[in-house]
């Protein structure tokens, strides 16, 4: 033991190690399914249906949907990792190991979020590797691509963390993915450009925050976007700040953790 900073640094590394080991031990459940799902997307939507749709802004349909599919895999798994890890630790009460120790709330949050990000990025890597057989992998701006993937992953890890704090039973951890995340992701322009939507639906689509994530990533990879990159990037940053603040606030008041 030692100074507070030293304690927090060791504790952070411990949480991250534990989180990574947790999802690595069950790699058949955590890393393989997104590869299979994405291969199915490439075959069905890309090759079979995509051939009939033709090119979008001079990219094949498979290439056009790939950034969205990649992002969907990353954010889904970032979210799932934190929500399941936090909720299971609450359910089996081993979250108390953290709560009784001298770990600051920001360290707990950082540890869980890093775990979610590492899982999200690991899934991203395996999806990119699998995609090599189906898409022409292009990068317009590698720095922007990495930043967008990273910030999207942190954003959804924090969403999962909040969900985990508020969850009181197993059903609660599925409510947000089922009723909010999945619809918003599918309506966020993975499979289409909003210019393909009729009239008012183009305006409505702009309310969806996931649209900005998908377009920011699509721009970083293909150089095309439906929205301003500055606005998209600002929204991603803003949501990250708001969610980090909310997570810390609820941790500080002990929501779902301390009675």
């Amino acid at each position: 033991m030692g100074s507070n900073l030293n304690i927090q640094a060791v504790a952070y590394k411990t949480i991250v190690r534990k989180e990574v080991l947790r999802f690595s031990r069950i790699w058949k459940q955590t890393l393989i399914p997104p590869v299979i799902t994405n291969i199915l997307y490439f075959i069905i939507f890309g090759n079979l249906i995509g051939d009939r749709i033709g090119e979008i802004e001079s990219f094949s349909y498979t290439d056009f949907i790939f950034p969205g599919l990649l992002l969907m895999s990353v954010i889904t798994h970032s979210y799932t990792n934190t929500v399941s890890s936090l909720y299971i630790s609450k359910y089996h009460r081993y979250i108390e190991e953290l709560l009784v120790s001298p770990i600051q709330n920001y360290t707990i949050l950082a540890g869980f979020i890093t775990g979610g990000v590492i899982r999200g990025l690991s899934v991203g890597v395996v999806v990119i590797l699998a995609a090599q057989f189906f898409v022409t992998f292009t990068v317009h701006n590698i720095f922007l691509m990495l930043v967008v993937i990273f910030l999207s992953s942190t954003l959804f890890s924090m969403c999962g963390f909040l969900n985990g704090l508020f969850a009181n039973d197993w059903d609660d951890i599925n409510v947000i993915p089922t009723f909010i995340m999945t619809p918003l992701t599918y309506l966020g322009g993975i499979f289409f450009s909003i210019s393909m939507l009729p009239g008012i639906w183009q305006e409505i689509a702009l309310i969806n925050p996931i649209l900005y994530l998908i377009n920011a990533l699509r721009f970083s990879m293909l150089g095309i976007t439906d929205v301003s990159i500055m606005i998209a990037f600002s929204i991603i940053l803003l949501f990250n700040i708001v969610l980090a603040s909310l997570c810390l606030y609820f941790l500080n008041i002990g929501k779902g953790l301390r009675t």
Partner: peptide, 13 residues
Amino acid sequence: EIITNQAGYYGVT
């Protein structure tokens, strides 16, 4: 792992 993780939470490497 349970033991060494707990140590880590207290800043023990």
